[in-house]
Design a protein around this nucleic acid. Structure first.
Length: 950
DNA sequence: CAGTGAGCGAGCTTCCGCTTGACTT
């Protein structure tokens, strides 16, 4: 492991000839671009991003560290959080290449991006390449010949504080992700994940859905008037809306809260009957303009694109997903059409500003260009601004028309968008007028009614001629070039109403997030980086936390469970300000005002509340994870309380292994049940039912619908319908028996007893699917075959007992009285003959350890620790090494044929070191919750999923 | 959420942020 020393870089060398320099940048495209600027004394090569990282999992950890308690994390938390870095497998060839290039170089220039990650990449290069020649750090913000040459002549040393800040960020993310995710595996579902970025992203989406679920809509009315201003007016007619009655403002949507109630009492809510009466009473009355207010309208152009805004606009205008936008932008970048596409800066280089202005002048005329160059310095939270804005490449922009034949459709559309936005950014403000008219009249019933109309006329389009930003269709809103013309009326002028239409409205819940609006929200919180926006969406989709419905992101129920758990037990970690606070702390580290080790220690171990950072001041993560594991009740976490039904019973969504389902406690009405006994009533939830559509009424409907599986067809023999379902023990098929004749309802006598007896009648046949089958593909034929089980093989000639073949908990087996024998495969259940069965029974029962006394796959030498001989055996979980006492599975990369004694000893030592921890916790956990059921679940074999959340 | 007879060694899942091909279809 490497430690950092100050001043790892040093001055230039002084040989006679021109020194040869190896320059390493991050991107190959960049390397190609700057090489000509530097000339032949420079060799420019790309690192292609990071070359090393923390090990991804145990398999990536070098043998030397495998036994360490911290190997799982890749960070030695007990020794100043020293990080273990490994060269990423796909970068090994790159590292070799760089090393060989370095052999011919007299000097090394680390020209990675000028931001935190770039500084870290430079340091990793230094650590990995171990150059013997002088090393300099070269930084540039602009790729022009002069900027590159200047950068090569004005190098600096590596900024170790900045590298520290990056490493702190990296380690924090690792500790967060790799400590909290396992909590979810144990409490919710395996393979789930938590992380600083994805968990907040998920929380944001869930939180919006909760708002939608809690939302109560309100109804309100007003009157839409069509007014005539006389034949001289232009336009002659226009629309206006009733805004006040007798001086009291008429309620609008924004006057209502999410609960459907008025937020303030100073407004008047008009209901339908009143709106109709009023419209009637206003018929034919004199209307007069009571005020006409005109204001100038100006609009500045939008800043040039950065990654987030490009993704948002491409999403809205072109309906591209973030991923698609980035894929196309990457191609445009690589082929030299646009500048770098992963940026958080809106800055344009001087030459780009000139190019945009020249093009705007050409196309629209000088008056459409802003008098002075515009620079947009609006800073994004935590922006690092290592690159320019996204714009057409070069000192002269190619017009979309010029590129039409060299780009494909998607590329063209995206280029055009970027080009328009860039050119528009240097154009003049749009100017116009907004006019607000108020029109008054007294209704026949005496009320003084005021109507209002507002219009916008654009007198000078300016930049709007080139580019108008789209508005989010889910959120509503008005675009900047929307015009509505009103006649230029003055106070006192008379108008007449040609139509008075009562108009009803309802308030709407807040819109769901789209990819674009979620990225925008995250960006505003300073969460995520341009290079990760698209992958954040992918992560929460892949984990099943959200799914898409059109362009909307809908949270799955499992996201409610996960977010609920995190909020309740790891609140600080999903706090919206957590990342912002972290960034402040990282800045302090980068400035040398805080220490990486202290900060991480406070974050991980907690301890004294020092000056080392606000994020860290939340109690130690390690302890939190430890205590939470015992505190968190999995059943509670996975029960999402929805509402009370009509009888006051709580209705829950339970997140189970086979998907979410509805549940409530109802009175047990079965035969012989105690009067106050309660049973769970459950109902399946349709796939991808958006949570806010699950209303009380809909829940009742689901409870009333019998649960059904996929109908496969009708059994020709019995006439019964055959269905395939997912059950507690995995997928199975069963038959639907015809309904017993409905008992005659006798209101005087409850028919409970009779009905119960009928239900307990003949049981439907069932059969688990074979391993080779799946619910999606199983056919009626398969199902009928399964329902023939158990199959009578015959009677044992010796004892006369019946032998049957059937499928059980542990797979296929033969049964004769209470004596059983496993079958080798599932097919034998259908094919085994009586002779073969008798033969199998003639063998003693293989049980326990005897069953697994197969010959070892390979014999090894003696264990270095216990001096016992070691052998490799094949077990249920694959090959493992054993010394007769300790067993340890071979890991990824270990081969039965080639494993050495030393490695085998290491595995055994590792296993011993770990101790029987896992077993202890399972037992404890099992004992803690519903004892009876847990015991059964524990016994279930691994492949049949344990019903851990009953 | 169907319901049926044993007892054996776990190991893996997971984070965020930097970059492109090399694969497959």
């Amino acid at each position: 492991m490497a430690t950092r020393e100050k001043g790892a870089t040093s001055g230039t060398s002084g040989t006679g000839r021109n020194p040869r320099r190896l320059v390493i940048v991050e991107s190959p495209t960049k390397a190609r671009k700057i090489a000509p600027y530097l000339g032949r004394d420079y060799v420019v090569e790309a690192s292609v991003g990071h070359i090393r990282d923390l090990p991804r999992g145990a398999a990536d950890v070098p043998a030397k560290y495998k036994g360490e308690s911290w190997a799982r994390l890749g960070v030695d938390v007990d020794h100043d959080f020293e990080a273990l870095y490994v060269v990423s497998p796909d970068k090994r060839a790159k590292v070799t290449e760089l090393k060989s290039l370095l052999k011919d170089a007299d000097e090394l220039f680390l020209a990675t991006d000028p931001d935190r990650e770039g500084e870290a990449i430079a340091w990793h290069l230094l650590e990995t390449l171990k150059p013997k020649v002088p090393v300099r750090r070269m930084v540039f913000h602009e790729i022009t010949e002069s900027a590159i040459r200047a950068a090569a002549n004005d190098t600096r040393e590596l900024d170790n504080d900045l590298v520290d800040a990056q490493e702190t960020r990296r380690i924090l993310d690792r500790l967060y992700g790799y400590e909290v995710s396992p909590v979810l595996w144990k409490k919710v579902m395996p393979k789930l994940s938590a992380g600083r970025v994805q968990s907040v992203a998920t929380r944001v989406v869930v939180s919006r859905e909760r708002d939608r679920m809690a939302f109560r809509s309100a109804e309100y009315w007003d009157i839409l008037a069509k007014l005539d201003a006389g034949e001289k007016a232009s336009p002659r007619t226009f629309g206006a809306r009733l805004v006040s009655v007798d001086g009291s403002r008429v309620a609008q949507g924004r006057d209502f809260g999410a609960d459907g109630q008025l937020k303030s009492s100073s407004v008047t809510v008009i209901d339908e009957p009143y709106a109709r009466r009023l419209a009637e009473a206003l018929g034919g009355v004199d209307l007069v303009v009571s005020s006409a207010e005109s204001k100038p309208y100006t609009r500045k152009p939008y800043p040039p694109f950065m990654t987030s805004t490009l993704q948002q606009e491409a999403g809205r205008k072109l309906r591209f997903t973030s991923e698609r936008t980035m894929r196309i932008a990457q191609r445009l970048y690589e082929n030299g059409y646009i500048t770098y596409m992963r940026t958080d800066s809106t800055t344009l280089s001087e030459s780009a500003i000139n190019a945009a202005r020249a093009q705007a002048t050409d196309l629209y005329g000088a008056e459409y260009v802003h008098p002075t160059p515009r620079q947009f310095t609006r800073k994004v939270k935590n922006a690092q601004e290592a690159h320019e804005a996204i714009r057409p490449a070069g000192d002269v922009f190619a017009t979309p028309g010029q590129l039409h034949s060299s780009l494909d459709t998607d590329e063209f559309r995206l280029y055009e968008l970027i080009w328009q936005r860039t050119v528009a950014s240097q154009m003049a403000d749009a100017r116009g007028t907004t006019l607000t008219l108020r029109i008054e009249g007294t209704a026949g019933t005496g009320e003084v009614c005021t109507f209002s109309a507002s219009g916008r006329t654009i007198t000078f389009a300016g930049f709007l001629k080139a580019y108008v930003e789209s508005v989010d269709e889910l959120a509503g809103g008005q675009s900047d070039d929307a015009e509505s013309r009103l006649p230029a009326l003055e106070e006192g002028q008379a108008v007449t109403a040609t139509e008075l239409e009562p108009d009803g409205h309802t308030t709407n819940p807040p819109a769901r997030y789209t990819e674009a609006s979620l990225i925008k929200a995250l960006e505003e919180m300073g969460i995520g980086r341009p290079s990760t926006y698209a992958s954040i969406i992918k992560t929460i989709l892949d984990r099943g936390y959200v799914y898409k419905r059109g362009s909307a992101l809908v949270p799955a129920w499992v996201a409610f469970a996960v977010v609920g758990l995190l909020e309740a037990h790891f609140g600080r970690l999903v706090d919206y300000d957590f990342t912002a606070a972290m960034e402040d702390d990282l800045d302090k580290i980068a400035e040398g005002q805080a220490q990486r080790g202290n900060w991480l220690s406070n974050f991980y171990f907690g301890g004294d509340v020092g000056a080392e950072g606000s994020v860290a001041r939340s109690g130690g993560l390690k302890k939190m994870v430890g205590t939470r594991l015992e505190d968190i009740d999995a059943r509670e976490v996975n029960s999402i309380k929805l509402f009370k039904d009509d009888e006051g019973r709580d209705v829950y969504v339970r997140v189970g292994r086979f998907g979410p389902y509805l549940e409530r406690a109802v009175k047990d009405s079965s035969d012989g049940a105690a009067p106050d006994a309660v049973v769970s009533q459950r109902a399946n939830l349709p796939d991808e039912l958006p949570p806010d559509e699950l209303t009380v009424e809909y829940a009742e409907k689901l409870f009333a619908t019998p649960q059904e599986g996929r109908v496969l067809g009708v059994d020709p023999a019995s006439g019964n319908e055959i269905v395939a379902k997912e059950g507690r023990f995995g997928p199975y098929v069963t038959e639907i028996l015809p309904e017993p004749e409905a008992p005659q309802e006798d209101p005087a006598k409850p028919p409970a007893k009779k009905a119960a007896k009928k239900v307990a009648g003949p049981k439907p046949r069932t059969g688990s699917l074979l391993k080779s089958m799946s619910l999606e593909t199983i056919t009626l034929e398969d199902a009928l075959r399964l329902l023939t089980l158990p199959r009578v093989v015959g009677n044992d000639p010796a004892t006369g007992e019946e032998i049957t073949a059937q499928n059980g908990r542990y797979g296929p087996y033969l049964k004769r009285g209470t004596d059983s024998r496993s079958l080798a495969n599932e097919e034998q259940m259908f094919t085994v003959t009586l002779d073969e069965a008798v033969q199998i029974y003639s063998q003693p029962k293989q049980r326990g350890r005897q069953a697994s006394t197969a010959p070892p796959l390979r014999e090894l030498g003696k264990d270095s620790a216990t001096d016992k001989p070691m052998v490799i055996k094949d077990g249920r979980f694959g090959p493992y090494v054993t010394d007769g006492e300790t067993n340890a599975s071979l890991r990824k990369g270990d081969e039965v044929e080639s494993i050495t004694d030393a490695r085998a000893s290491e595995l055994l030592a590792d296993r011993r070191a770990r101790g029987p921890v896992a077993k202890k916790t399972t037992k404890k956990a099992a004992a803690k919750k519903a004892p009876a059921k847990k015991a059964a679940a524990k016994k279930a074999p691994a492949k049949k999923v344990a019903a851990k959340k009953a």
